[in-house]
Design a protein around this nucleic acid. Structure first.
Lengths: 81, 81
DNA sequence: ACAAAATGTTGTATATTTACAATAATTAAT
DNA sequence: ATTAATTATTGTAAATATACAACATTTTGT
């Protein structure tokens, strides 16, 4: 299976909550550098890791991750008006 | 990260649609034995593969996959009454 | 009952993800 | 301005996912 690059909102969600990668990594049970890789989208998480992130943020996987580049949350929100 | 076993509804969703593993595998672009491994929950898919499955069935990832054992669809449906 | 199709099992090889360490660069705090 | 904290970069090793093949078993169709 030829890999497909995935996109995510990890960086913004983490910043919204005002925590560092190290803190997020601890909540998730993963090395803090792994968070860096994911935020830079250098590789895709396993489904298990995606679920952990989803659980920490309390948001569904499809909201955090996408096969297509993600619009800024502000724009998504305004489109709901 | 110690791996966590994940659960999924791939087998029922595939059977609902009346297709074989081979056919599903072709739609997804993966080896047909990989579908077997996933249905038997012998290992977890990558997030990319989870997205492909989600796209083929037209259902969100959180509906198809779960960190906890999944109730039969019939039961989930009845609980909505 | 038989043949064909689908699924399961076992084994090996490759690709991708995760961990970890050491150091550089950037940003934040004092 | 300096220190501390955070993030980026590079490299290596380990764990897990995916591909593929060959054969056994089960199920389905006729």
């Amino acid at each position: 299976m030829k890999i497909r690059k995935l996109y995510n909102r990890i960086a913004i969600l983490r910043q919204e909550r005002g925590i560092s990668r190290k803190e997020l990594a601890e909540k998730i049970g993963v090395n803090f550098q792994t968070i860096g890789y994911l935020e830079r989208e250098e590789y895709n998480p396993s489904l298990d890791l995606a679920f952990r992130i989803s659980e920490v943020f309390g948001l569904p996987i499809d909201f955090i991750f996408s096969t297509k580049p993600l619009k800024p949350l502000s724009q998504v929100l305004i489109e709901k008006f």
